[in-house]
Design a protein around this nucleic acid. Structure first.
Length: 228
DNA sequence: TCATGATCATAT
DNA sequence: ATATGATCATGA
């Protein structure tokens, strides 16, 4: 197998990527889909990742890549985020799967979640369900890295949640754990199972989980940047 | 009304 | 089943 080749149109610097993202502001999904020659679904019920894939296309992300970020050569992760008319997030943000086994030697410093969030290109897109997908517009993109405070919040939550996983308490974790990070199911359906550690240290089978950023956190980071 | 738990599509 | 991309939809 070949390694993931970079797309021919991938940006070769962070600034170029950012400028390209800024240039999308104001366009509707219909305009972008038509210009790209892509069919646009009526809604996202059966195409939940459609907006993300469309933006990946425009920004030259490595589609289908198994690399650690969308732009591995730049170390940047792309996140589209659905927002309301006031720019507030309508959904939590999926970051990555929570590892339920094989966590010996895993620390915050070398964690996959930290790596994913080191540098994020946030692209807000109107996402209110009463607005037809075709009419939804792209907002102003934001390049972000966690500041010291944000990093400490992330670290505390990650360590608390990972402790529970390692101690066999994964099935007692709810979305209410964590200040800014939460763990929720991330699966095709409730019958998809994966291996984890049970309350007596024995192997169990449970729903795959993912780390998500809570809405209040992403709302704050977006507003911080756009405030005056 | 809204967050939690559940789910959808596709590629490998 | 796991990874990518996330949003849906129902109970509180």
């Amino acid at each position: 197998m070949y390694n993931n080749p970079l797309p021919p149109n991938t940006p070769d610097s962070e600034q170029q990527l950012y400028q390209r993202a800024l240039a999308l502001a104001g366009y509707t999904m219909k305009e972008l889909a038509e210009a790209a020659g892509l069919p646009i679904p009526e809604n996202l019920k059966r195409d939940k990742g459609w907006v993300g894939m469309l933006l990946e296309h425009y920004l030259g992300a490595c589609a289908g890549s198994k690399a650690e970020q969308d732009f591995p050569h730049l170390g940047v992760e792309l996140k589209t985020i659905p927002v309301n008319a006031q720019g507030k997030p309508l959904e939590t943000t999926f970051v990555c799967v929570a590892p339920l086994i094989g966590n010996i030697g895993i620390t915050w410093e070398n964690s996959y979640l930290r790596k994913k969030l080191r540098r994020v290109l946030w692209v807000p897109v109107e996402g209110e369900r009463n607005k037809p997908l075709a009419q939804r517009r792209v907002g102003t993109a934001l390049l972000w890295s966690p500041d010291n405070h944000e990093e400490q919040q992330l670290r505390r939550d990650w360590e608390e949640l990972m402790d529970l996983i390692v101690l066999g308490k994964v099935e007692s974790i709810t979305a209410r754990h964590g200040e800014i990070l939460q763990i929720r199911p991330k699966a095709a359906n409730s019958r998809a199972l994966t291996e984890a550690i049970g309350e007596f240290g024995q192997p169990i089978t449970t729903l795959p989980r993912g780390f998500y950023l809570k809405k209040e956190f992403t709302a704050t980071l977006l507003s911080k940047h756009f405030k005056i």
